[in-house]
Design a protein around this nucleic acid. Structure first.
Length: 611
RNA sequence: GACCCCGUAGCUCAGCCGGAUAGAGCAACUGCCUUCUAAGCAGUAGGUCGCAGGUUCGAAUCCUGCCGGGGUCGCCA
């Protein structure tokens, strides 16, 4: 995934206007409220409480605000009703030359109708600085500032990635793109679970493959990894060590084989991720947290840190409810007071043999992130780890004195389908469907878009047949086609006017007042929503909103395009009308810029033609 | 038993920090191709937002309790 343009924003232009008309009018209304407050007719108000958004129904206007209703109580002494306050705000807004009209509706909505110039201004902003349109300039949300760490994938290094991992991977990657585009300094991170019993199991499995490579006949017992993907790892070991490890005791060969196996598996996983255009900046090893420096590991240090805060104690826990584990024993153990931070019970930090629990290591890991200066942590996990969220959130609160927030995003399961029928995913003999197989079959664009065309916490049916269909039923195609169609219009324009300068910079100077048709304005209005969608999606950590927006934007475009069939005067390219064509080309160009920008955030390509 | 997620049109799902007559796609029905890509578009029909309370000017949205589906519970990772 290519990072977003590193070139510094053009502050001179962007400081003048954010080109987020919703933010713009939010600020205008805030100023009006302040003015009324200065007259003593309103108290000082929290401007974050009201919103400016598109009205429910586009016939009501271009913008709507609930400001008067939200502040109904505070307004009571001087305004008989919310409507009265709304009227005053509306009147003040209407004084601006770019406002066509305001009206008060319902219980006190302020509906604002803008002059068309307002939207052509937006198009100009798109064309003047294509890579930066939609970037969050100055966010009202504190979540969109500072350093953010997004930890995602973090699959155990024991085999190739499966489709479920892929969802978390795509989600995390798109979210990281989105946050970077929104002004955060983002680090993409992968936590390698290379310390537990699972990697020992991996090592034993590889050891068998090693002996197999030396000519021994092997059988893989229950509980080890049977997959063929370990064969090359065994073969490589045989080549490197010949028979040196074969006669050794397990304590001898295990560290050697384990290290080689983990390296090989991480190589495999990096390859799987690369196939999805995903790269992480940081790979963080769990094993490193266990390593002792001067007799103290990072885990010990983290526990000591919490102990010094009075958050660690020796105590007993009630037995778990429901199915009681066979080996449950009631004993005194080292516990973290996670209940002080919203967890249901305190959590164990050490096993009975004195070694740290997985949670203890995770505490040390998150302490490391906090120490690295991140303001916000995002962890992307599978839904089966939902029960772990409270304790980790509690730990981060404790470790940072509540300065740093942890947002855990859980990704639900992916159900693979083919033309409506579930794909059998037998785990027997390790022949499950790998992520790589799916990417190879349907392509990275389809995988990425479909994984993002659903809320992360909703289960996802992924139909291998549907996502490569070239039809409007396939949202990936639908959006990419809109982009290609736009590019096609630009090619048509060039065919009609070979000397026309189609560069964005040049189109920004077009006479955009010629865009007078409702369909054209509808498209411009939809484009104008992009910055708002970006900010909301980034603040909520919900990249799917971008995917839905792109689908809707495409729909508006396809719709307008088709109007040109019955009404030829609406076509983008009019061979006999150069200025009009330029204006319309500027509109289409803005569309392709925004589609391209959004698709880039999702990591999906924006083709010039469909083939 | 406790906690988490989900419950919105026949199906798959959106619905932003509470806002106006609850939206889209599919499926169904009716139309639009000598015309810039019909790989598309327009229209019709379809919903007690799981149920019952509560909060307030206003609840699909927030709170409580139920019902239904899924997940989790550990010294696993």
């Amino acid at each position: 995934m290519a990072p977003q343009s590193a070139k510094p924003p053009r502050t001179s232009f962007r400081a003048r206007t954010s080109m987020n008309i919703f933010d713009d009018f939010h600020a205008r209304i805030a100023a009006i409220l302040d003015r009324i407050a200065a007259d003593g007719r309103l108290p000082s108000l929290d401007h974050a409480r009201f919103v400016v958004e598109p009205p429910k129904d586009a016939t009501l206007g271009d913008l709507a605000s609930n400001a008067a209703m939200v502040f109904a109580k505070e307004a009571k002494p001087h305004f008989a009703s919310p409507r009265e306050l709304a009227v005053e705000i509306g009147y003040a807004l209407a004084q601006s030359p770019d406002v066509a009209a305001t009206e008060v509706a319902g219980p006190g909505f302020i509906n604002i109708r803008l002059k068309p110039e307002m939207f052509t201004q937006v198009l100009r902003a798109v064309l003047r600085d294509p890579p930066n349109f939609g970037r969050v300039v100055k966010s009202r949300s504190s979540a969109l500032q500072g350093k953010v760490n997004v930890e995602y994938v973090s699959a155990n290094p024991t085999g190739p990635m499966h489709v479920g991992h892929g969802r978390g991977a795509v989600f995390g990657d798109a979210l990281a793109n989105l946050l970077a585009f929104s002004g955060c300094a983002v680090t993409r991170e992968y936590y390698i679970n290379d310390a537990g019993a699972q990697v020992d199991v991996l090592a034993r499995s590889v050891y068998l493959r090693y002996r197999e490579a030396l000519g021994e006949a092997i059988t893989i017992p229950e509980g080890l990894y049977p997959g063929d993907y370990l064969k090359p790892v065994g073969a490589a070991l045989a080549k490197a060590h010949s028979k040196a490890l074969a006669g050794a005791a397990e304590s001898e060969w295990l560290p050697v084989v384990r290290a080689a196996a983990i390296d090989a598996m991480m190589e495999l996983i990096r390859g799987d991720l690369a196939a999805l255009n995903i790269t992480h900046e940081t790979f963080f090893s769990e094993r490193a947290l266990h390593a002792e420096k001067d007799g103290v590991s990072a885990i010990d240090a983290a526990i000591d840190w919490l102990r010094a805060k009075g958050l660690v104690y020796e105590g007993r826990l009630p037995p778990p409810k429901g199915q009681l584990p066979d080996d449950w024993e009631d004993r005194e153990q080292t516990l973290f007071r996670s209940t002080l931070f919203g967890d249901d019970v305190d959590r164990a930090l050490k096993k009975s043999d004195g070694s740290p629990t997985y949670f203890a290591a995770d505490i040390a890991y998150h302490k490391d992130k906090i120490d690295r200066g991140f303001d916000t942590l995002v962890d992307v996990w599978g839904a089966d780890h939902g029960g772990y969220v409270k304790r980790m959130t509690a730990a981060v609160a404790a470790l940072s004195d509540k300065r740093v927030t942890l947002d855990v995003k859980l990704c639900q399961l992916v159900k693979l389908m083919r033309a409506g029928e579930p794909v059998k995913m037998s785990k027997r003999a390790g022949d499950f469907v790998t992520l790589r197989e799916v990417v190879d079959e349907v392509g990275v664009d389809a995988v990425r878009f479909m994984m993002l065309y659903r809320k992360n916490d909703a289960p996802l049916d992924f139909d291998l047949a549907k996502v490569i269909e070239q039809s409007k039923d396939n949202p990936v195609f639908y959006v990419q086609y809109a982009h290609a169609r736009g590019k096609s219009a630009l090619r048509q324009a060039l065919a009609a006017f070979p000397d026309m300068d189609l560069s964005a910079q040049s189109l920004a100077e077009a006479d955009l007042a010629l865009l007078a048709d409702d369909g054209e304005l509808a498209l411009a209005k939809m484009i104008a929503q992009y910055p708002r969608v970006i900010e909301a999606a980034a603040a909520a950590h919900e990249p799917h909103r971008v995917a839905f927006y792109l689908h809707e934007l495409s729909s508006v475009f396809h719709s307008h395009w088709n109007r040109g069939k019955d009404q030829p005067h609406l076509r983008f390219v009019k061979a006999e009308e150069r200025e009009l064509t330029i204006a319309r080309v500027a509109l289409v160009s803005s569309l392709t810029i925004v589609l391209g920008s959004g698709l880039r955030l999702l990591g999906v390509s924006a083709p010039d033609e469909m083939r």
